[in-house]
Amino acid sequence: MSKQSQSMRLDRYLATVTDYSRSEAKRLIKDGEVTVDGETVSNVGYAINNNSDVCLQGQVLRQAGPRYFMLNKPQGYVCAAKDRRHLTVLDLLDEDNPERLHAAGRLDVDTTGLVLLTDDGQWSHAITSPQRDCWKRYYVEVAEVISEKCIEHFARGVFLKDDKARTLPAELEILAPRRALLRLKEGRYHQVKRMFAAEGNAVTLLHREAIGDVELDESLAEGQYRALSEAEIKSVNHG
């Protein structure tokens, strides 16, 4: 994914990174209120790329192109744009137009850990599609002692309540009688909790540590986030 390959019309970019509508953005451009790389541009269809420096009325706007962030999600937040009962992960961001971002692989309201946020739909599809083999790793604590048989059952796939097909093969590593790591590449509704429920156990704590090769940054406290590195972004597309 080369930054140079990303381009966008100037009027669309302006409407994307500000609260102006597309028609308002066109008017601002035609009125000479926008500069690109220090030069006033009045062509609304002017193509900019990720490296373009765009200013509106002298104020620098963020770079064009898709955005990629990792967030250490606390309990009590949902991975949605809006929710009537809970705060959303977007409420934790200090970014322009956060509503244009979405979670690439959601977590339940009481699950903590790594959430990837982006406005690049193709990139997030590479994470959420089971066909792409993007594994997710979870740290799990449960109410009852974990049976060794769970390793074999999860590797074979289990039937979840109300689902007609087995889960895809998953890897379970038992760390202690009631603690384990679980790697899986699906994202069914409440999947980890339902997998342990199928074995007669109940999840008491669930924390996502990694998505593909992207590991949760240990320096991020709960509720904090940072931009992904170029290597982390590319690891998803090429993983």
Rank of each mutant, 00 (worst) to 15 (best):
222 E>W: 03
175 L>T: 11
208 R>V: 06
173 E>D: 10
137 R>P: 00
199 E>T: 07
232 E>I: 06
215 E>P: 00
163 D>H: 12
192 V>K: 03
227 A>H: 13
234 K>S: 09
190 H>F: 08
197 A>R: 13
217 D>L: 09
215 E>M: 14
232 E>H: 09
206 L>A: 07
168 L>R: 15
222 E>V: 07
139 Y>G: 01
197 A>I: 00
202 A>M: 07
194 R>Q: 08
182 L>Y: 08
233 I>D: 04
226 R>P: 00
209 E>D: 14
181 L>C: 04
200 G>E: 02
173 E>Q: 15
233 I>G: 09
183 R>F: 00
173 E>F: 08
223 G>Y: 02
195 M>V: 12
229 S>G: 11
137 R>E: 14
176 A>C: 00
202 A>C: 05
137 R>F: 00
136 K>D: 07
218 E>S: 15
225 Y>L: 07
214 V>D: 02
200 G>I: 04
170 A>T: 05
205 L>Y: 14
158 V>K: 10
216 L>D: 05
178 R>E: 11
180 A>M: 03
144 E>I: 03
143 A>K: 14
212 G>N: 07
188 R>C: 08
146 I>R: 04
224 Q>M: 12
234 K>A: 14
227 A>S: 14
161 K>L: 09
224 Q>I: 02
182 L>A: 08
209 E>Q: 15
203 V>P: 10
136 K>Y: 04
231 A>H: 07
229 S>E: 09
148 E>V: 09
191 Q>E: 15
142 V>C: 12
218 E>R: 15
202 A>S: 12
153 H>T: 12
176 A>P: 01
213 D>P: 00
208 R>G: 10
161 K>F: 03
218 E>Q: 15
176 A>R: 13
165 A>H: 12
169 P>S: 11
230 E>N: 12
205 L>A: 15
234 K>E: 06
167 T>G: 07
147 S>P: 01
195 M>N: 11
221 A>D: 12
228 L>H: 04
136 K>F: 05
160 L>K: 06
223 G>C: 03
155 A>M: 01
209 E>P: 10
181 L>R: 13
192 V>W: 02
133 D>W: 05
151 I>L: 06
137 R>G: 00
151 I>K: 15
164 K>W: 01
235 S>C: 06
190 H>W: 06
205 L>R: 15
235 S>T: 10
141 E>D: 05
234 K>C: 02
151 I>D: 03
135 W>V: 10
206 L>Q: 09
213 D>N: 14
212 G>L: 06
148 E>Y: 02
151 I>R: 13
